[in-house]
Every structure is written in C-alpha cells, then in structure tokens.
Design a protein around this nucleic acid. Structure first.
Lengths: 230, 230
DNA sequence: TTTATGCTTCGCTTACGATCGAACTATGAA
DNA sequence: TTCATAGTTCGATCGTAAGCGAAGCATAAA
C-alpha cells in the first residue's frame, strides 16, 4: 500500500497552475528572480513568495542569494526531466485546448530545455553526432569519442574546461514534442552557448523559443545535416 | 506565458494522494476493478468512482467494461514513464520519510514496472543483453539483433507472435531506484512472463514486488550473469 | 540619515475539491 | 420475479490552500 516513494507530494507541488508556470519558466535554464517569476506566473509577489518557499522545501528548486536579489533555478536535470515527461503527456493525449499557434511550431523546431537545445534541431544534432561516431550510447550513459572530441573542439567548445567541472559531460534527455533523445549535460549546454556566440541563434526574452538566423540555419546544416521533416 | 502543454492539469491529477495510490497500484500492469482500486487507495467506492472518472477524462487510464465489472489500467507506457520519473524524484531528494524497510529492498531488487521487469534484475538483464550484442541502442530506439533473436527464442519467447502484434517490440524505460535503463515493450513483458512460467519468480498479490525462487536466482545468473551490488 | 527596492510574514477571505452517506442504475444469479 | 453485487449520481460537509492587502525586514543607493 505504501510502496515506493511519495509521488503525490511532488505531483501536487507541480500541480498548481502558478507553480507549474514558474517551473515552466525555469525550464529556460536561466536563474530568475522572485519578482520575475511572479509576473511570469501571473500572481502577486507575496503569492509567488509562498510558492517559491514550497518549491524549495520540496527540493524542486535551488536558490542563490545575491544582495537583495534571490535567484531561483531548477534543482537539477532530474527535475527538468520530469517536467519534460509531463509535457510529453500533456502535449500528446492531454487537453490540447492550447491550440497550436505559430509560437508552438517554433517551440517544436528549437527550444531551450533546461539549458541545452531541444526540439527538432536538438534531435538532429544528437542523431548526427551519434551517426558519425562522435557519441556512443550504452544504457543510460553517453560518452564522447575521440573523434567527437575533435569535432566539438573544432566547433569551438573548450572540452578541457568542461571536464574540470564536476557536472557530467554528456547526458541524454527525452523530448516531449518528438519523444526522442537529445544531448544534455555540460556539453549540451556548451554547444548551445557556442551557437549563440557564433550568431547562429538567439533566445527570445522570457521564452523558451530559440530562433535561428538564416546564417545559423546554413551553419547548422553544414555541421549537423538537414533537419528531419517537422 | 502559455507556452507548451498544460502541465498543471496532469500533475494535479497525479497530485492527489488517493489518485496517486491508484496509479501506483496500476503500475503493476494488471488491470484492476474499481472496488479493488478503492481499497488500494484507502477510500470508499464512491470516492474512487469520482477519481477514476477524472483519471479517465485526463487520459491517464484506459477502461474496459466486462459485464458488471470495470477493468482499469494505465493508458499506456507514456503514463508509466512519467510515474517512474516522478518516483525517481520522490525517492531521490524528496521526503524519504517512508523509511526504507525490508519491503523497499525487495522493490529495489526486482519489481514490476507497468508490466516488465525493473529494479536491479531488470537492469542486469538489459545490460547483459546489450553487452552480448543481443540488443542495439541508437537514440531512443532499441532493436533486437539476429543473435538476440536466437537468444530470446532459446529462452522460450515466441518472437514471431510478438511481431504480429502492433505493439513495439523493444522499448527502453528509466528506473527510479537506480536511474538506469531497462527493457520494456512487448519483449520486456514476454521475458517477465516466461520467467514466471519457468517458476523463476512470482509476483506477490497486490504488490509490485517480484520474488525470485532460489532456482530462479541460479537460472538468472546463468542467463544474465551476476547482479551488480545492490 | 533617508529613500527606494526586493522579498517575507501576517491575517483574512474565498473557493475549490475530496470525502462520505444515501439513494439510484445496471448486470448477473437464484 | 427477487436478491446480490458492481458501480454511479446526488447532496451536503468540511478542510485546506491559493490569493491578496498591508505591514514588516533587509539590502542598497542618495
């Protein structure tokens, strides 16, 4: 009867609309302040403060204080994973009364998932790197091969610096829009950062959409091949 | 602001203790009746009826009527995936006030996840099959190789029959207790069924624990090698 | 110091939803 | 037909938690 962990507590935590909005906003990977999150969730700051306290107590968010600001972010990739999985359910068979607008198409093509690239482009990148033997996958664990190291270094990523951090280099992450795997971990984050740096893409403020410039689209195709049909 | 799918609705659905209990019970893969679920959740039948209506409306459960009985099961593997992911969060960093009892150890060793084998044994089986080249993994997709076909046929599984069904043969599924992948899909289900048929293991009524007989433990080691340290 | 800003705490109202008793419908057995 | 069992619907109760206004801290600038 009381088998396994206590699902309900965490699900209830995510189940409140205001908190769900907050968590969704944090899926952009950026750390946001309490006031920003309040406006994002559509509630007053007092209410948001209460919600944030609960989220933190529940271990879903991490908090960093800096001066009189409070920066909130997701507690980790595990949390992002659960959120993506939930989005998968909601998008798939759930109430799709949120009719698919132009915004939605953009989300499916390229978006930020916690802090790496997801959507069709994220999948395309992952598949291409796997197909060219730059990544290997065994079970849950993902690893960068020797050729992969050359590849990402050419791309402009400082692998050695990433290795020094304790964060795992490669992780796989499941996508809600296509139910496919893409690249997460510090490498995934670095690849996205590099694309922004090269002027390939930029994020829209307060949104998870990643917009690619025409130059970026060309560059992407050169490095990772064409996009699969959307 | 209203980006992506509506997480909150589904999370709230799972977030009620009674409904969470119902869903957890359904993780055994068996279809249960409304009254069984009511007692499982610790509420009266009327209350359970209301909950079941909501779960069905939310697309989390599927219902099959037979005579005056109503058999409820999870709507599909996607739902099971989300539940497992949530368990991962809850088990990992969440409130572990459900202190790990002997029951819990058994759950970690071998349990039913929707309808295939999970826990340490599930992972061991998956890893062994991958290591011996019986399975290949590319992205999210998992495939049975030629040698794998021989292997599972030797094990007593009728591959041809499984192929005729429209359900995917191989799927991977993430484990909450170890954050590792194991084998799902119709093959995963068939492997578990075959183990039970051979008298290796049996499920405890009303529980997700899978108990292995001493003969079963020997057989398991012969076919899939030793268990990793728990 | 004063003033502004970011966030929290308090007290209160409000509303939604979980729960159950009781009555009702449907299927099957005697 | 009558009885028993499985499940639903109705109505009422009750608790909890979300929400906000107002006041209270804390930090930083003027």
């Amino acid at each position: 009867m009381k088998e396994g962990p206590d699902i309900a507590r965490i699900a209830a935590l995510i189940g409140d609309p205001a908190r769900a909005n907050i968590l969704s906003a944090l899926m952009s990977g950026k750390a946001l302040t309490a006031t920003e999150l309040a406006s994002e969730a559509g509630v007053t700051v007092q209410t948001a403060s209460a919600h944030l306290a609960k989220l933190e107590a529940g271990g879903l968010t991490a908090v960093r204080k800096s001066g009189r600001h409070k920066y909130i972010s997701l507690a980790g990739p595990h949390v992002a994973n659960v959120l993506e999985a939930l989005m998968g359910l909601a998008a798939g068979q759930g109430h799709l009364r949120t009719r698919t607008g132009p915004r939605d198409v953009a989300l499916r093509e390229a978006r930020v998932c916690y802090n790496h690239l997801a959507g069709a482009r994220g999948i395309a990148m992952f598949d291409a790197m796997l197909a060219h033997g730059h990544l290997t996958q065994a079970g849950e664990t993902l690893a960068l091969t020797a050729s992969g190291e050359v590849f990402v270094t050419d791309f402009g990523v400082d692998i050695a610096a990433l290795r020094r951090a304790r964060v795992p280099l490669c992780r796989s992450c499941l996508d809600w829009s296509a139910r496919r795997t893409h690249l997460a971990g510090s490498l995934g984050r670095a690849m996205l950062a590099q694309m922004e740096l090269q002027g390939w893409a930029h994020r829209q403020a307060g949104s998870r959409v990643v917009t690619f410039t025409s130059q970026g689209r060309r560059g992407f195709e050169t490095w990772f091949g064409p996009l699969p049909s959307l």
